[in-house]
């Protein structure tokens, strides 16, 4: 039973990270029809921004302060990268979705290559407080402290995002734009601003996801390709949840986290197939699409 609960906790943390990675992707696609394949790059840059800031902080900072600074740097780094991407590369290509997809792939490849050139292919270690590496134990129940942080931040972002989309004028504009972009313009709204905003919000969440992935599931290591592997799961979450739906992303992220974690443990450990959790996620995707082709929360048009 305690193993079951331990897994429940860690899959919640995994789900939280998938949610952070996927919800921005989902909003961007829903509003702009841009499949942003540079989203993994935002995640990687978030983690590197955290690492880079940590290495430049004075040694007098305590470990907890350094970690908070890393989180803030990851959020700002992801937001800045995404904002620049939208303004410089995506905006000149409005109305040409295929070109936009291609430019995001190219950007992702270029940034990964730059990171490999600048920092090398070996992983870097993110400085974190000792407390974060430890876990609270009770018998066989193990609750990793890093998972607490991931779950807490994931829930906080979900609540904040729901509030923003429901209560603010920009949020309402984004929801309306996901439904019918043209009519938003016909109400006299400059929808281009909403595009940039959605990219910035998505990038901020992606940057946070990249950093949290390192501290929860990658042993505090960061590497130039970590975002791209996360992106694959984020894309699956977006498709399962339904394009453009935040609630869909949240539910699908949990589902994918749970299925992957439990399968890895119960089937992976016994069968010796290390990647069986990934396979189970793809099977889940196929089953959901068979049952609901528009995803769990996808709107029928």
């Amino acid at each position: 039973m305690s193993v079951f609960l331990t897994l429940a906790f860690s899959s919640l943390a995994l789900g939280a990270i998938y949610f952070l990675a996927a919800s921005g992707l989902s909003l961007i696609y829903g509003l702009m029809d841009v499949l942003n394949l540079a989203h993994g790059m935002f995640m990687t840059l978030g983690a590197y921004a955290g690492w880079d800031l940590a290495t430049h902080l004075p040694a007098t900072w305590n470990a907890a302060g350094v970690f908070v600074a890393e989180v803030v740097a990851a959020i700002l780094g992801g937001a800045l990268a995404a904002g620049l991407t939208e303004v410089v590369l995506i905006r000149p290509l409005y109305g040409r979705p295929l070109s936009q997809i291609l430019v995001t792939i190219g950007l992702d490849l270029a940034v990964v290559a730059l990171l490999l050139g600048g920092f090398g292919s070996s992983s870097l270690t993110l400085p974190v407080p000792l407390w974060l590496i430890e876990a609270t134990r009770s018998g066989n129940l193990i609750l990793a402290h890093a998972d607490f942080i991931a779950i807490g931040l994931g829930v906080a972002v979900l609540v904040a995002l729901e509030w923003f989309l429901k209560r603010t004028r920009y949020g309402i504009t984004i929801r309306a734009g996901v439904e019918n972009r043209e009519m938003v313009q016909a109400l006299g709204i400059d929808v281009g601003r909403a595009f940039t905003l959605v990219f910035v919000i998505g990038g901020a969440m992606a940057g946070l996801a990249g950093l949290l992935y390192s501290v929860t599931f990658a042993g505090d290591l960061i590497s130039p390709l970590q975002g791209d592997s996360l992106l694959i799961f984020a894309l699956i979450v977006v498709v399962i949840g339904g394009l453009g739906s935040i609630r869909g992303s949240a539910v699908a992220a949990l589902l994918v986290g749970v299925v992957q974690d439990y399968t890895n443990y119960y089937l992976g450990t016994h069968s010796g197939l290390a990647e069986i959790g990934n396979l189970s996620v793809v099977l889940l995707l196929a089953l959901v699409l068979e049952w609901r082709p528009r995803g769990l929360f996808g709107r029928t048009v």
Partner: peptide, 29 residues
């Protein structure tokens, strides 16, 4: 959006209200 802000209101053929938004949100927008 600039043409509209000049003072041009548009009521499209299929109404195009935002189905997922409330009446209040449609108006606020």
């Amino acid at each position: 959006h600039r043409v509209v802000q000049l003072g041009v209101g548009y009521v499209p053929e299929d109404r195009d209200v935002f189905a997922g938004l409330t009446v209040a949100e449609n108006l606020r927008l």
